[in-house]
């Protein structure tokens, strides 16, 4: 399988195998007008199998969201065909305005101007809770 080299764009590498589509949807990559390549179950020395996403343009990516979904991802920014910058993710301490609280009893469900916020409550299990009602965060 051959996928062309990127001149300017982003490569999301070391995605846990099977999580690629989740990231594709969460980052709304389907709405871009540039080429986007999704490689699933690629061989990886480090991980055994991994997913990779290549985006044919440099776009703003919410690294906190990416860190929340899969903190092992490497974000490679490519300019002029060369690696310009490499970002490693960490688990964000909080996620603001990204996820909606799914708890129907939460105040955020009736007051739309409130900015949603989830805080990391347990690092090992990567548990995030709504700051208002303490419900667990769920992916959109």
């Amino acid at each position: 399988m051959i996928i062309g080299k990127i001149e300017d764009g982003i490569v999301l590498d070391h995605i846990t195998a099977g999580r690629g589509m989740e990231i594709y949807r969460t980052l709304h990559l389907d709405e871009l007008d540039c080429s986007v390549a999704m490689i699933t179950n690629a061989d990886s020395v480090k991980m055994g199998r991994k997913d990779i996403i290549k985006i044919g343009r440099v776009i703003d990516i919410n690294l906190d969201v990416l860190g929340f979904i899969d903190p092992g991802i490497t974000v490679n920014i490519i300019r002029g065909g060369k690696l310009y910058k490499r970002e490693r993710l960490t688990l964000p301490k909080s996620l603001k305005g990204v996820l909606k609280c799914k708890n129907p009893r939460c105040i955020t469900t009736v007051e739309p101007e409130l900015v949603s916020e989830f805080r990391l409550s347990e690092v090992d299990s990567r548990t995030y809770r709504c700051i208002y009602c303490e419900a667990l965060a769920q992916l959109p």
Binding site: N103, R105, C106, I107, E111, L114, I131, Y132, E134
Partner: peptide, 29 residues
């Protein structure tokens, strides 16, 4: 009226607020 607007108004008259609300997190707001 939102919780935020109500409490901002009430804070002009009172020194302390006690709130009961059916929605979880309203007193935090």
């Amino acid at each position: 009226e939102s919780v935020a607007d109500t409490v901002r108004t009430v804070a002009c008259y009172a020194d302390i607020i006690v709130m009961r609300h059916p929605k979880e997190g309203a007193p935090l707001v």
